[in-house]
């Protein structure tokens, strides 16, 4: 399996959820893989995973694209193309940002644009998980339950819950955590000196 085969669907899915435009998402994938190959020598495995690095490149490409798009009149932006809408779940009303697509992105705080990318990436990663992995994550994040509380709620052995949670978190980490710091200015030190990204 090539690097493209391994990562293209996730990157395309994330870019599409973020941009809501299939052609623009395809361009982001093209540019991201080209950038990956051109900068291959700069990749440092100790600083993050290849998936994280690629998605970091993709994030920058997609945000550049969104901002460039926003500088032009985009009358269709307020009504996403039907295919893109189906693909991205734009009609579910969950993504508050979808209602703001008509607004120029350049006027949005970058923190909110970042959040939109993160949300697209989170959705993509969740869509690839097994239902039982998503279930334990939802109980942890939405209800604040501990591992033992989740085990009690689901009537499962604690070991089962832990292994599901670990699998799910490893998937999330590969996309969201193993990313070289793209914004040094937003890093702060933790108790042990490691950087923590503050968004």
């Amino acid at each position: 399996m090539t690097i493209y085969d391994r990562y293209a669907d996730a990157l395309f899915g994330t870019a599409l959820r973020f941009l809501r435009d299939r052609e623009a998402a395809a361009e982001v994938v093209q540019e991201s893989f080209l950038a990956l190959w051109r900068r291959a020598r700069q990749f440092d495995a100790a600083a993050g995973s290849l998936a994280g690095w690629l998605h970091g490149i993709g994030r920058n490409q997609a945000i550049d694209r969104l901002r460039a798009d926003a500088r032009r009149p985009q009358p269709l932006r307020s009504a996403p193309a039907s295919q893109a809408a189906r693909d991205t779940g734009a009609a579910d009303g969950l993504d508050w940002a979808s209602a703001r697509l008509a607004a120029p992105v350049s006027e949005e705080p970058s923190e909110e644009t970042d959040r939109r990318w993160l949300r697209a990436l989170l959705r993509t990663t969740l869509s690839e998980m097994q239902p039982d992995e998503r279930e334990v994550l939802a109980l942890a994040y939405d209800h604040g339950l501990s591992q033992s509380e989740i085990a009690e709620r689901l009537g499962l052995p604690i070991g089962t819950v832990k292994s599901r949670t670990r699998r799910a978190l490893l998937r999330l980490r590969a996309r969201l955590g193993d990313v070289p710091d793209l914004h040094p200015a937003t890093a702060v030190s933790t108790a042990f000196g490691g950087p923590e990204v503050v968004r």
Binding site: G13, V29, L126
Partner: peptide
Amino acid sequence: RLAAMADDEPIQAPDELRSVVRNRA
């Protein structure tokens, strides 16, 4: 709620994109 985000179906990249990327690379 994370649970509400978790019902998206996976999205596949268009088949033709593979050859375009390969050629450009």
